[in-house]
Design a protein around this nucleic acid. Structure first.
Length: 259
DNA sequence: ATGACGTGTCCGACACGA
C-alpha cells in the first residue's frame, strides 16, 4: 500500500499534473495541500474516474485547503485541529484500511511563519502546540497513525541546501526544529530517514533564481509513522519527476510504502 | 536587493508563499 503527500500549489492549476502523476503512480492514498479552492470546486467526478472514489475535502478560497484522496473508503473524517480554533483549512484526518490494519491518516498544511519575530511566526508556534496536543489524543485513540504533509520545517541541517547561510531563518529556526522533535517524541518517526537516501534530498525548490536546476531546495514535506506502523514501512522516497514538468508545483510528491 | 516566480483575486496591484 502506498500513501503520498503532495503540496500542489492550487489544484485548479495542477489538476492535470495530479491526473498524469497518479496514472503513472497509482498510489492508494494521495494527500494534497494548498488546494486553494472551496469544497464545491473540488473535482470529485474527475478524480473518481481516475480511481479515487473516496475523497475527504477541507477547502478554502484562495489559500490553504487540504484533501485525502483514496481508492478505498475512508471513515471518521475530522477537519482542523480539535481544540484549536483556526481560521484556516490546514488539517484533515481520516481512517483507512492498511496491511497493518486500521490506519489513521492525518494530513496537514503547516503554517509557513514568514520570519521569526512576526505575528505569523507566533501563529506558527501556537499552531504547532495545538497540533501536538491534538496528536497526543489521536495517538491514544489510534495506535497506527501516519502524520504527513507540508510541515514547513527543515528538521535538520542536511534537509537544507544552505544550512549555514539560512541558520535561524524561517524553516530552520531552533523553535521550529524543537516542535518537530516534540512531535516525533510522541512516538513517531521520519519514514524518509529509515532508509539510505541521496545527499541533498529535497522536496521543495524556489521558483525563483533557478532553484530547481541548481538544487537549491529544502526537505519540508514529511511522512511520520507511529511506532506500530514503523515495522511495516517498506520504502519512502521523493519523486522529482513532476517538478521538471511544465508549470510545476514548487513541491515534489513524497511517498511511503507499507507492507 | 523588503528582489526574483507563481497563483488567486479582481483588473493593476497586491497578498502570500518558503
Amino acid at each position: 500500500m502506498k500513501i503520498t503527500t503532495w503540496n500542489v500549489n492550487s489544484l485548479t492549476a495542477r489538476l492535470q499534473h495530479v491526473l498524469d502523476w497518479t496514472a503513472a503512480n497509482p498510489v492508494d492514498v494521495l494527500c494534497l495541500q494548498e488546494l486553494k479552492m472551496t469544497d464545491d470546486k473540488f473535482p470529485l467526478d474527475v478524480l473518481r474516474d481516475a480511481g479515487y472514489g473516496h475523497c475527504a475535502v477541507f477547502g478554502q478560497k484562495t489559500y490553504n485547503g487540504v484533501a485525502i484522496m483514496s481508492r478505498a473508503p475512508v471513515r471518521d473524517v475530522v477537519k482542523n485541529i480539535t481544540g484549536f480554533a483556526d481560521e484556516h483549512s490546514r488539517v484533515i484526518a481520516a481512517t483507512v484500511d492498511s496491511p497493518a490494519g486500521e490506519l489513521r491518516v492525518v494530513n496537514g498544511y503547516f503554517v509557513n511563519g514568514q520570519a521569526p519575530g512576526t505575528d505569523k511566526f507566533a501563529y506558527k508556534m501556537s499552531w504547532l502546540s495545538g497540533l501536538r496536543a491534538y496528536l497526543e489524543a489521536e495517538m491514544r485513540q489510534h495506535g497506527r497513525l501516519v502524520l504527513l504533509g507540508d510541515f514547513n520545517i527543515a528538521p535538520e541541517d542536511r534537509d537544507s541546501f544552505d544550512p549555514e547561510g539560512l541558520r535561524e531563518t524561517i524553516h530552520h529556526t531552533s523553535e521550529e526544529r524543537e516542535h518537530f522533535r516534540q512531535i516525533v517524541g510522541l512516538g513517531l518517526c521520519d519514514s524518509f530517514r529509515l532508509f539510505e537516501q541521496p545527499e541533498k534530498s529535497f522536496s521543495w525548490w524556489d521558483y525563483r533564481m533557478l532553484g530547481y536546476p541548481k538544487n537549491r531546495g529544502l526537505r519540508i514535506d514529511h511522512i511520520l509513522v507511529s511506532d506500530a506502523v514503523r515495522p511495516h514501512v517498506k520504502s519512502c522516497g521523493i519523486d522529482r519527476v513532476p517538478r521538471k514538468w511544465d508549470k510545476p508545483s514548487d513541491h515534489a510528491p513524497v511517498t511511503v510504502e507499507l507492507g
